[in-house]
Design a protein around this nucleic acid. Structure first.
Lengths: 220, 220
DNA sequence: GTTCCCGGATTGTAGGACAATATTGTTAGA
DNA sequence: TCTAACAATATTGTCCTACAATCCGGGAAC
């Protein structure tokens, strides 16, 4: 019953590339060639192609016919579009998660505490990390695989701002305050307030990102 | 500048399969083997595999390691999950579309008229067809490619109820009345009402589908 | 009837080949 | 010098073959 799930070569390569992208070893806009990655990972071109396709479907890479794939970059408008969709979906997720998290809020509170610590210690990496897990918590606890998967894909698109966002201490304070509003609404079992709070948080985050300089975005 | 965009072999195969699925020539749950489709379309296994992957990403096929792909079937719960996500996204789309369609409502009105005709003539095929285009109109007119693409994917999952839904005349009347509410809200430039109306319409549609017998769904 | 094992079918991956296309570099001309 | 046409090169798109890994069905043994 508990079969050893050996993951396919293509999947391993895909994971490796995804990790490299998120880790910043592959920069946005950079072109990836099949032959190079094949030899680097000691696999065939077929497997690399398959990995490329999965990552393209996951919005991590961009594909252009006869030109190969590049590490995906988003234009300002695409980021805007993304946050609109994400806002709607994350609002849904938080709303559905309220009763669940109200019943067992341990992890939520732990994350809140972790982010508070990070803010106090001015540790941006820690904050960013906890922030990611905070947003991932809601889709995880509700029982809707489609919603969870869709949100994961969207979050993938935003890997590139992990390093750039929240550089200003002021922003971190604001963001953390928004998180607190969400947590409080959850604890009060107030679904409507929670939805309102997460929606505004997403909108604020989107606005924050739009304030980044042009060279963080793909040309229109 | 206007380059002839020859579509790739894999894409052609993918389109052909998608069409066959939607047309009912490939039934839900049916297994597709690479070799068979390759010879049928006169292409190589590589191209078929690539087509499979795209269609899997589009949620039209289901993939199981070492077991190949099957025409996707949804369980009751998965349909429920789907309608929850779809409700959130289509609400967003309609809300954003209100000002646009208010300004030039020609196509919206034409579709409404077409559905009225279909109901009057008791032509289910015509109604189903117009219904599909009705729902596709909103993501199309708003300028958000991600939202449009995401909704398209979700709609893909529901191809299989094209034939089974709305068999009851009563249902068609109700559905058409819900459409009318949406159209009226758009014409009145009333975004909130339009959002409310589409949301309820999606919920009602989901409930309608859940009334289908078990054998239309994949086992839990 | 259940379990074990086998053989056939299918997928997963490698590797090579070559045409189609894109990119780059070079040369000729204005 | 800049530009345009062209040639050389690199890369992708597709096909082919091969074979190991895995799954599936059926028969043998218990």
């Amino acid at each position: 019953m508990t079969e050893r799930d050996t993951l396919s070569t293509a999947q391993q390569v895909a994971s490796a590339i995804a990790q490299a992208v998120r880790g910043g070893h592959l920069v946005p806009g950079q072109r990836l060639t099949e032959a190079e990655l094949a030899s680097r990972h000691g696999v065939s071109r077929s497997s690399v192609r398959e990995a490329f396709q999965r990552l393209t479907a996951d919005r991590l890479l961009a594909f252009e016919p006869h030109r190969g794939v590049t590490v995906r970059r988003l234009s300002r408008k695409e980021v805007d579009d993304l946050f609109a969709v994400r806002g709607a979906l994350e609002t849904l997720a938080v709303g559905l998660a309220v009763p669940v998290l109200r019943a067992s809020p341990a992890r939520l509170l732990a994350l809140q505490a972790e982010m508070d610590d990070a803010v106090a210690a001015n540790d941006m990496t820690k904050f960013s990390n906890a922030n990611t897990r905070f947003h991932a918590l809601f889709p995880e606890v509700i029982d809707n695989a489609l919603l969870a998967e869709t949100l994961t894909r969207l979050s993938n698109s935003l890997y590139w701002l992990q390093f750039r966002m929240l550089v200003d201490r002021q922003d971190v304070f604001a963001s953390n305050a928004e998180h607190r509003r969400i947590v409080e609404a959850v604890l009060a079992d107030d679904r409507l307030s929670a939805e309102m709070a997460i929606r505004e948080h997403i909108i604020a985050s989107g606005a924050l990102i739009q304030r980044l300089s042009d060279d963080h975005f793909a040309p229109a």
